[in-house]
């Protein structure tokens, strides 16, 4: 059986789990390539127009895979930590896909509650049950998948740069270099190193978040807020570069929340949508880098 895994959204964080799980069950894994222009074209053609760019791009990857495999992983990730949620668009992702792309092979629809092992095992039993009836095999695949996931870290922490910024944003905005117009390489070329939220400890994130009058219930908000404010307040970085998809509801709150807490600390917001013209994007990055470097000199 060929299982298609779209290289989009939380693929960048949780792919080791899914890939190991399905290969251990004896499936062949077909991954879509890194986002490219062909996928972006599918994305805008086969997705409702109000969705944000990352959701659109997910549609593009599914479309790319649909005739190449027997089933497609469409992870309906509900939560990864207790009392927190992932963005609401993830809750309805299988339905969005089904109603926008026709002639699909079967897709996975079981909700994923990854806040504890038992709940996640329920997902594995349900979805694994479509592939094999052997419960022991599923359990073994599940355990190995979790082990692989635990070994894995994503994100960036550049060494050897005098000037460093935190690259903030949802994991897929930070890790998909097509979506973010190669922002990491561009910053590196200007002599600026990058650190991402994965390199800030949970304790430091929680320390910052606990100072808020209410704990954010979106995981993305909590992680990005906590790590960014921690890095800025402790002057571990010289600036904040935030990659945000046009129309993102979570970001509209999150960006203001960060701004209110870091004062006049250098903060650049890069809005991304379906543009492929990079001039405006480059202008902002170059101006920000000039500002950081000239600020340091004075």
């Amino acid at each position: 059986m060929k299982v298609g895994i779209p290289r989009a959204l939380l693929y960048y964080k949780y792919n080791p789990f899914f890939e190991t799980f399905y290969s251990e069950l004896g499936c062949e894994i077909i991954e879509s390539p890194e986002t490219n222009k062909v996928i972006l074209d599918y994305a805008s053609k086969y997705c409702v127009d109000e969705a944000c760019l990352p959701i659109k791009i997910f549609h593009g990857h599914v479309y790319y895979l649909k005739d190449k495999c027997d089933m497609i992983l469409v992870p309906r990730i509900m939560r990864v930590n207790d009392k927190e949620y992932i963005c609401p668009k993830f809750c309805g992702l299988p339905e969005m896909i089904e109603n926008s792309i026709y002639d699909l092979p079967p897709i996975t629809k079981t909700p994923i509650y990854a806040n504890n092992k038992e709940k996640l095992l329920r997902w594995a039993n349900r979805e694994g049950g479509n592939i094999t009836k052997n419960k022991i095999k599923i359990k073994r695949a599940f355990d190995n998948a979790l082990r692989e996931q635990e070994k894995y870290t994503c994100g960036v922490n550049d060494e050897g740069y005098k000037t460093k910024v935190v690259l903030a944003g949802h994991p897929y905005s930070v890790n998909d270099s097509f979506l973010n117009m190669n922002v990491i390489k561009k910053l590196n070329n200007l002599g600026i190193g990058v650190i991402t939220e994965e390199f800030v400890s949970k304790d430091d994130i929680n320390y910052e978040v606990d100072k808020l009058f209410k704990r954010p219930f979106w995981t993305f908000t909590k992680d990005t807020y906590g790590s960014t404010v921690y890095l800025a307040d402790n002057r571990k970085v010289d600036g904040i570069v935030y990659v945000s998809s046009f129309g993102c509801g979570i970001d509209s709150v999150l960006i203001e929340l960060i701004k209110n807490n870091v004062g006049d600390f250098p903060f650049l917001i890069l809005k991304v949508d379906e543009h492929t013209g990079e001039v405006g994007f480059n202008t902002r990055i170059e101006a920000f880098s000039d500002m950081l470097l000239r600020r340091k000199l004075s």
């Binding site: 006049d264 250098p266 543009h275 902002r284 101006a287 920000f288 500002m291 000239r294 000199l297 004075s298």
Partner: peptide, 21 residues
């Protein structure tokens, strides 16, 4: 096609913003 605000302090750009999309 762009509008900008630039804040300066002691002869250095300390903040700027440009219109989004």
């Amino acid at each position: 096609q762009d509008s900008k605000i630039i804040t300066l302090k002691d002869g250095v750009v300390t903040d700027f913003a440009m219109n989004t999309v």
